[in-house]
Amino acid sequence: MRSQKLLYVIPVLLCASILFAGGFTNSEPNGAAEGSSEELSSSSEENFDKMMAVLMHKRCVNCHPSDNIPKQGEDSHPHYFDMARGEGNLGYQATTCNTCHQSENNDYSGVPGAPEWSLAPESMKWEGLTRTEIAESMLDPKRNGGRTHHEVMEHLTEHELVLWAWEPGIDAAGNHRELPPVPVEEYIEAVKAWFEAGAVIPAE
């Protein structure tokens, strides 16, 4: 019962400027099979840039916290009501993520939702990491839930909770949540091409 202070803060989510804006449209899909090795590595870097611009966006990082506290909104403030990771990344015993979040966004309340709504496991903490560190963590089976590269690629391009980032709905004030800076189709193509080209993490 610590939340009495919080009702007065009905979520009015702030609009922040778009990170990594621009520069990602109109590029050709990258075929890894042809071209010089220089071309290959530059297209791989381009794909990496696009992928990481998305993965470092608040729609992703808000649920990959480093302090077990989910974040909310465009300003990534700590989740209201002192919600935390709790058990199994799903909140507390009787007040779970699903007490409020369902499998779809709710436009009446402004509460976001998607299938399997939860925090990313603790080993997948991304908040505060550089893009290289996030990429390393993502490829490390000790931290990525034992996933192979192919499974990580599938997770990043097919998982409904990941793809929710492009359909994030409206917030409690009726404002549309900010989308990641790369269109979803372009992101999916870039992720697949980057993995197909060997998932090379460029030097910072």
Partner: peptide
């Protein structure tokens, strides 16, 4: 446990 789970608001 009460603090964590009972997070309703009483004015």
């Amino acid at each position: 446990d009460i603090d964590n789970n009972i997070i309703n608001v009483c004015r």
